[in-house]
């Protein structure tokens, strides 16, 4: 088990969005602007790292039968912390992410990593796993949001970039655009893999 691979697998090989197809609700919902995407990514990464570390620390004392409810309590605690801190210090972001902040609690990536990795591995590796997976999630959200915001609104991070003659493809920042963009990205990565294997 090399440390580097625990960290880097989240980006491509086991990217939670593109490869494991997990955490789709927030991916679709908040990728309409780069700001939202990165805000969500950072929030989820924090929760992922903290819950992985705590789950790994308590893994020997947790009775098998009730491990899932306990993991959920741990995750919900950190989600609430993120929620409260964001409301106090980044109210604009908190408002535009809306209910998707508390819904990080049911993001399958987080419970999935607690169950599949942190519950069985030592603290430091769990930390790296959480960090890598979190950044992989953020990376996926960011590239989807770049496509959607640039083509759908003609801007990046809220800054207009396209020439005035550019007519934004409004559809892309509306809900259908989220499905279409993610579908094409998934297809693109499948095609890339098939080409590499051939």
């Amino acid at each position: 088990m090399s440390m580097m691979s625990e960290f880097s697998k989240g980006f491509y090989k086991e990217n939670p969005v593109f490869k494991l197809v997990l955490g789709l609700c927030p991916t679709l919902a908040v990728s309409n602007s780069v700001q939202n995407a990165i805000g969500m990514g950072v929030a989820a990464t924090f929760v992922l790292i903290m819950s992985n570390v705590i789950v790994s620390l308590i893994r020997k004392g947790v009775p098998k039968k009730i491990r899932i409810p306990i993991y959920i309590v741990v995750i919900a605690t950190f989600v609430t912390i993120v929620d409260l801190v964001m409301a106090g210090f980044a109210p604009a972001l908190h408002k535009s992410l809306g209910i998707f902040v508390p819904l990080i609690v049911v993001n399958c990536i987080i419970l999935g990593r607690a169950e599949a990795f942190a519950g069985k591995n030592p603290v430091f590796y769990s930390f790296l796993d959480g960090l890598g997976m979190g950044l992989g999630f953020t990376f996926a959200l960011t590239i989807i949001s770049i496509v959607r915001e640039l083509l759908g609104n003609g801007s990046l991070w809220g800054v207009p970039l396209m020439p005035p003659s550019f007519e934004p493809v409004l559809l892309l920042i509306l809900p259908p655009g989220a499905f279409l963009t993610l579908g094409l990205f998934l297809g693109f990565f499948n095609w890339l893999d098939a080409k590499r294997d051939a």
């Binding site: 309590v73 741990v74 609430t80 409260l84 106090g88």
Partner: peptide, 23 residues
Amino acid sequence: LLLVTALASGALSMVNKITKPKI
């Protein structure tokens, strides 16, 4: 489970005390 939840609630009430005035 009750103990874990109580611990979590206790931790959150501390965080809440700090963030509430800010919110």
